[in-house]
Amino acid sequence: MEKDKVPQDDENLLEGKTRELQYAVDEDGKYVAVKSVGWEPKNIVLQQEWELINEKVQHAKSLVEKDKYSPLYYHMKKGLMSSWVLAKYAEISWFKVIRHLKPKGYSKLNDDQIRKYKYAFNMKDSDDLSKMD
């Protein structure tokens, strides 16, 4: 790749927070590092992934609204977690977590468990666990 061909296709996926370093050759064939804001094929596949995740989250939301699962399920999907990862973050046994993902188990949560789940989802203490945004 030549230095002047380093792609600069900005789709605001880096949110202006950083740029990526790309290695390219200059006129003399020497390697230099060039900063790039993005590249189209890469943006496409990243957006493809997020499209899919958002679909899954919406699906999870509809399941919760139908009372098939508890709101924990929605937050879990939104946090891209599996029940195993959620159990690890919340420091609650996985067997309990899978019960809490159902409405019946969710209704039996005690304060300590709620606090732990809020930590796992990176929520403030004042946030409502059952609220889905």
Binding site: Q22, Y23, A24, K30, Y31, W39, K42, V45, Q48, L52
Partner: peptide, 29 residues
């Protein structure tokens, strides 16, 4: 999706593009 996964691994942030091939070329130079 299968193809997208390959490209994501190849061009993911922190690969320098092209699955580290340019970085290795820089090393060889």
């Amino acid at each position: 999706r299968h193809l997208g996964q390959i490209v994501r691994m190849q061009e993911e942030i922190g690969t320098g593009g092209a699955g580290f091939r340019f970085l290795y070329a820089a090393f060889l130079q």
